[in-house]
Design a protein around this nucleic acid. Sequence first.
RNA 1: GGGCGUAUAGCUCAGCUGGUAGAGCGUUUCAUUGACAUUGAAAAGGUCUCAGGUUCGAGUCCUGAUACGCCCACCA
Length: 713
Amino acid sequence: MDKAYTPKSFEETTYTSWEKAGYFTPKKENGKEPFCVILPLPNANGDLHLGHAMFTIEDIMIRYHRMKGDVTLWQPGFDHAGFETQFVFEKFLAKQGKSRFDYTRDDLYKAIWDFTQANRGTMESQLRRMGFSLDWQRLRFPLDPEVIAIVYKTFKKMHDEGLIYRGERLVNYCTKCGTSFSDLEVKHVEQIDPLYYIKYGPFVLATVRPETKFGDTAVAVHPEDKRYNSWIGKEIEFEGLNGPVQLQVVGDEVVDPAFGTGVVKVTPAHDMTDYEIGKRHNLPSLQVIGFDGKLTAVAGPYAGLRVKAARAKVVEDMKARGMIDHVDEAYVHTVGTCYKCGTVLEPLPMSQWFVKIRPLADRAIAAIEKKDVSFVPQRFEKTAAQWLTDFHDWNISRQIVWGIRIPAWHCQSCAKNNPEKSWIITDGSTPTSCPTCKGVDLVQDTDTFDTWFSSSQWPFATLQANSDKTDFETFYPTSVMETGYDILPWWVCRMLMVGLFVTGKVPFKKVYLHGLVRDAKGQKMSKSKGNVVNPIKMVDLYGADALRMALVFGAAAGNDISLSEDKIRGMRNFANKLWNIARLFLMNTELIKELPFYDKTMDKDLVQSDIEMIKKLETTVKMTTKYMDTYRYSDAAQTVYDFTWHALADEYLEQNKERFKQGDANALSVYRHILLTLLQLLHPFMPFITEHMWGQLPRKQYEPLIISSWPTV
RNA sequence: GGGCGUAUAGCUCAGCUGGUAGAGCGUUUCAUUGACAUUGAAAAGGUCUCAGGUUCGAGUCCUGAUACGCCCACCA
C-alpha cells in the first residue's frame, strides 16, 4: 500500500471495476429477500449539490442489504423536470437574444431535448463519483416511450373512474412564465400595499386591487351584519369610472364584518374567495385581466394597461373624482408569487385538467393508519396525514411544451352542440373520429402534464418500464423511499396516492426522511450568503468517503444536518487512520503470507487482551447491525468509528506493537480478523477505501468486498 | 389563524423503549522514529432553557412558560 492515503488514486477505478463486473445489478434468485430503493430523480440537467449527496443514506442501505445477500436494486432515473427545465432553457435562449416564441412547438421540444441530452452526463458522472451503487443499466427518464405509455394509462384510468375532470376554475397563473401552477407551487410572500377604501354607492369598502373593479359582479356582506343585512337581495347603483354601475348585494358567511368596513366587492374572475362566493350566488364572471397580464376590453379605456400601471391610473382617476374615502398606506398582507420568477401570480379563470383528490387522499390516509407505510422519524406520519387532509384538487395542466403532452382531444363539432362530451381521452393513441358525433375535426390539447404527475408514478412506472419484466413483481412495493422532508407533500404524498390508485398497493413500505444540509453555523446554504459547499470539490480534496461519512455522522433522521469543511477533513483523517491500520499490519510482509485465519478454536491459545478485543469486535458487529436494521445510520457509523480509532488503534495496536514486531502469529491473526471485519462494517459508509484496502489484504473471502457477506456473530 | 419542530460542553450536534452526561471540531500541557503530525497521552469545559408533576430514580415521560426555527392558510 502507498505510504499516503490519496483517494483520487483509486476511487474512480474502483467504481469502474464494480460497475463493469455488474455488481449493481440485482441477481434474482428464488427464496431471497428483495430490497429496492427508487432514487429520488434529480433533474437531468444541472449539477450535483449537497441535497443529492444525501443519497449517501440510500447507498448505505443498498450496500448493507447487498452484503446481507438480499436481491438488491437501487433504481436510477432522471427527471425531465418540465417547467424547471424549460425555465432554464429560456434563460439560455434569452442570452442569445431569442425566445421560445421563435420556435414551433415541435422545434422547441427538440431543442430542449438536445439541450437536456447535452447536459445530462454531468449529473450521471457526479453520482458515480459519490460512489453510488445505482444499477445504471436500468436508468429511466419520464420521456422514455415506455414511461409515457404508463403515464397515459394512469390518466385514462383516472378519467374512466371519474377522477379527472376538466373545469374552468381560477388557476394560479404566472403572466411572465405563461403557465398555471398547482397550489403547492405558489409561494406566499408577505408584502405591504395600500388598502383603498372606495365609495360604492351607499357603502364604503376596502380593497388592495381597485383595478379589478371592472370585473365586480356583486357586493357582499355578512348575513348577520345588522349594519348592512337589510340590503341583501337589493341592488345598489352608483357612478363608476366608466359610467353607471349596478351591483346586487349578496350575503355570505365568508365576509368578516370586522375587516375593513365589512363590505366586500366580489370579483369572481380574479380572486379565489370571490370565485367561491360567485359560485354560491350564481354571479356572472367578468375577466378584467388577460393572460398577458394586461387589462381586457372590460376595463374600457384602461384596456391594454399592465396591472401595476392600471392600478395607479385607476387610483389617480378615482381620487380626482372623489371616489376614494381614504387609504391605509401600510396594509400588510400576503400575496401568491411565482416560486420561480417571483412575479405576483394572477388568479385567472381557465379550463384545465384537474385530479379529484379526496378519493385518492383518503385512501392514502387509510394506508398510513393501517401502517401499510410507516415513517422514519415517526412524526412525519402526522405531517403526511395533515397534508393529505388539506390537499385541494390538483391542477395537472401546464402551458409548456417540455413535458408529456396530455392525451386529450377536443372535438370541434361537439364543442358547439354538446360541450359536455367534447373531450376524448385515450391511452395515448390518436383517435380517428369522435365517438359522440363521428366528427373528424379533432384537436389535441396543447398542454402538458405537471412534472409531478409523472413523478408521482415513478416507483411503479420505472419498474414496469424496465426491460426485465419481472422487476415489478419482484420489487413492488419497494422497500424504502428515502428523501428530504421538504418534498413530502410534493412527491411522497402524491406517490402514495397515485401508487395506491394504480396498483392497489403502497409504492413503498417505509419512508425515511432526512433534513436539509446546512453550513457550519447551522445556516441555510445559499449563493447570496456565499456559504454553499460544492460536494464535488470536497470529493476532489478529501475523497468521496470522507464526504459521505461527514454527511451521516451525527445526523439524526428528519433533522437538519450541519456540514463544514472541518468535519469533512475530520472524516478524511479517520480514513487516513484506517489506511495506516492496514499499513502497520502489512509491515509483516513474510509472516502474513502463511498466517492462519482466525476462528473460535484459536481462542484457547490467545492472551487476555486478544480475547477482550475479539469480544469488543463482536459487540461492535452486533450493535452496528442493530443500528442498520433500525435506520440509525449515524449511530452505526459512530459505533464503528469509535471502535476503529479508539479501541483498535489507540489501545490494542499501541499495546501490542511489540508482539507484532516479534512475529506473534496469534496476535497478527487477531489483528487481521478485526481489520477485515471492520472493512466490511465500514463498507456501506466508505465504500472506496474499504474496497481498496480489502484488495490489498490476504484474506479468506476472495470476492470483492462489495459482495462479501455482512459479518455475523 | 392552523400544524410541526428545536432548546444538552466555546461551536455544530448525537443521546432508542427513564437508571449517576457523549461525539466531531476547537482550547491547554506533554510525548513521539514498526503505521499515521491527517499522530499519541493527559486535561479544562455542562445546575442537559425555566417552573411544576409522575417515579425509588428524568436530559429522557406529562403539564405549563419563555425563546428560536420551519411548513401551511382564498380575510378583501
